[in-house]
Design a protein around this nucleic acid. Structure first.
Length: 552
RNA sequence: GUCCCUGUAGCUCAAUCGGACAGAGCAACUGCCUUCUAAGCAGUAGGUUCCGGGUUCGAGUCCCGGCGGGGACGCCA
């Protein structure tokens, strides 16, 4: 990547200046190269002289000039300029830019990839919603975020696994089973109350109706406990299947569906608890078993096993993470949690310390809440209250591509409003179509070229010299940089913004430059450019999990 | 009360570990389709970056203090 090469050359130049005693020998901070906002400042810029001024006790402009003189010539760089108050600006060679078109076409659908991960194994665990009901929009945000991040990490040289943790043990699922049982009884015309802590949504009634229609007779003659278990077993399968289907609608798929219950069945739960005990991290208080997390950075201790002998969700989570890091040996684990789980971060980190696992290997992304509205009215999305708008309804109304784009555009730490009415109304003017339209236009040009049997292969990219052409190429070669930023910071929201800029560059080019014309040589050269633009745009859309339409 | 996230154009959001003039998309206004897709392009208008201090060459960004919004503080998950 050019950006990296420039940073490297800069660093060498600074070191060389120090060796020649033009600059004092101080410890150097990272030399950062960035994209200036204004094209007047070239393609890349470095503000390190400004930062070094204080450490070195010199005028930043002087530092910039001394460094600039010592920068080794790069084949990509046309000129290096020093600008007040102490920037070093780089402008790329036009002929080099033009040749990148060939490089992009050569790389094909792999273009944009980087090797940040060097094959390291990373697991992304996301969604992991309790299988007690349908997904809502908030879950969609985590799903899209996780899936896109997985795409980008895979493109960044990581070996990625996507995992959904199925909470098929514990109190919540039990309450769901009992609620479902009660609805089944009611379906059969018997008196039965929904439990206090139960689920009251209509979907439970609907599910009960289905189950009773299929297996009612057998279930009604079973003893209560047995019937609850059997109804629960069927209900869990049904709910998980509908969750899987809803996610698939959004284009989100998982490699592994990991059962919480399996941690108990395979003894991994007991094994992990023994480790904690052996490490002296457990204590008993008021009849319950506690994890001494306050000794490891948390602000309080946490219960592992209740006084009634039932393990908490947290206890399973300890075993689960031991499984991730030790049994399955992931180098890095990324968990995507909703804002309502942020309080769990310190205790999970404490768990890793207790298990002698580097806490830095666990990265937890907290996504802020999504408020769903229809017009001005806020809609409740709680599963227990019953009244809810499901993710499926939203995807049906708005479309998967638009959903993904909208969710991805916001940074994870911002809470967001999702107004269904607005999303629908705007759908014709949605930025998502702006981007996809660029792809459709490209496809249209390439179709026309194919119909006329134009031979692209003879195209000479050195004919690409005008600003709209070069501007488009400048945007295209930015993709690897964006991929790297997204992967390094786990911030997918840069992707849609980049997509918009790339589309803008293309639309501008389209207006200014007729592609298929009487000039055969120029036509072939521009077709190569258009083809490269298609590759970059399609890759960008594909990283976001969106379709790249041939026609619109 | 303590902790976490957040406050940027009328609306929804960006702003590259503190960088050059705070940018897009909708909405508003003015133009542009006999030529590869007008779901497009060009232009206009729109800002005390919640408020007040501080740090420095430089602050939307960092620190302190307020105010507003959301979330978490459970032997629920």
């Amino acid at each position: 990547m050019v950006k990296g090469k420039i940073a490297g050359a800069l660093r060498e130049a600074v070191i060389e200046a120090q060796r020649q005693e033009l600059l004092p020998s101080v410890a150097l901070p990272d030399i950062v190269v960035e994209r200036p906002q204004s094209t007047a400042h070239g393609d890349y810029a470095c503000s390190s002289p400004l930062k070094l001024a204080r450490i070195m006790g010199l005028n930043p402009l002087q530092i910039a000039e001394r460094v600039a003189h010592l920068i080794a010539p790069l084949p990509e760089v046309e000129k290096v300029e020093v600008a007040r108050p102490g920037f070093i600006n780089f402008t790329l060679r036009r002929d080099w830019l033009a040749r990148e078109v060939e490089a992009i076409r050569h790389a094909g659908r792999d273009y944009g990839g980087v090797d940040l991960g060097r094959g390291r194994r990373v697991q992304l665990e996301f969604v992991s919603v309790n299988p007690t009901g349908p997904l809502h929009v908030g879950h969609g945000r985590g799903a899209i975020l996780g899936d896109t991040l997985a795409n980008v990490l895979a493109a960044s040289g990581y070996s990625v696994e996507r995992e959904y943790y199925v909470n098929d043990a514990g109190g919540q699922i039990d309450a769901f089973y009992r609620s479902l049982y009660a609805r089944c009884q009611q379906e059969a015309g018997r008196q039965e109350e929904i439990p206090q802590d139960g689920y009251r949504g209509d979907y439970v009634v609907e599910l009960a109706r289905q189950i009773m229609a299929e297996k009612g007779d057998a279930l009604l003659v079973m003893p209560r406990e047995e019937a609850v278990a059997e109804i629960g077993r069927i209900g869990l399968l049904r709910v998980m299947e509908s969750i899987r289907a809803d996610l698939e609608l959004l284009g989100v798929n998982f490699d592994v569906w990991f059962s919480e219950k399996s941690l108990y069945d395979t003894g991994q739960y007991q094994q992990t608890m023994s480790l904690l005990r052996a490490g002296g991290h457990m204590g008993e208080k008021e009849g319950a078993v506690w994890f001494a997390s306050s000794e490891l950075g948390d602000d309080k201790d946490n219960v592992l096993v209740r006084s009634n002998g039932v393990p908490t969700y947290f206890a399973s989570d300890v075993a689960y993470h031991y499984n991730k890091f030790v049994a399955r040996q992931f180098d890095t684990v990324i968990n995507i949690w909703g804002a309502d789980h942020q309080g769990h971060v310190p205790r999970m980190k404490a768990v890793l310390r207790a298990l002698d696992i580097d806490p830095a290997r666990l990265q937890i992304i907290i996504t802020q809440m999504v408020t769903l509205r229809r017009g001005g009215v806020e809609l409740r999305i709680s599963k227990r209250s019953g009244e809810l708008v499901t993710l499926r309804e939203v995807v049906d109304e708005v479309g998967a591509d638009a959903c993904r784009f909208v969710f991805l555009s916001r940074s994870t730490d911002s809470q967001m409003d999702f107004d269904l009415e607005l999303a629908k109304k705007e759908s014709a003017e949605n930025p998502v179509y702006y981007v996809q339209y660029a792809h459709a236009r490209i496809a249209s040009i390439l179709r026309m070229a194919a119909e006329r049997n134009i031979d692209i292969s003879r195209g000479d990219v050195s004919l690409l010299v005008t600003e709209p052409e070069l501007g488009l190429i400048r945007r295209m070669i930015e993709l690897p940089e964006v991929v790297e930023i997204v992967a390094a910071n786990l911030e997918p929201h840069h992707l849609p913004h980049y997509a918009l800029e790339l589309a803008t560059a293309f639309h501008g080019f389209y207006r200014d430059c007729r592609v298929i014309s009487e000039d055969e040589a120029l036509t072939a050269a521009r077709l190569k450019l258009v083809d490269a633009a298609r590759i970059v745009l399609a890759r960008t859309l594909s990283l976001m999990g969106m379709t790249a339409p041939e026609r619109m």
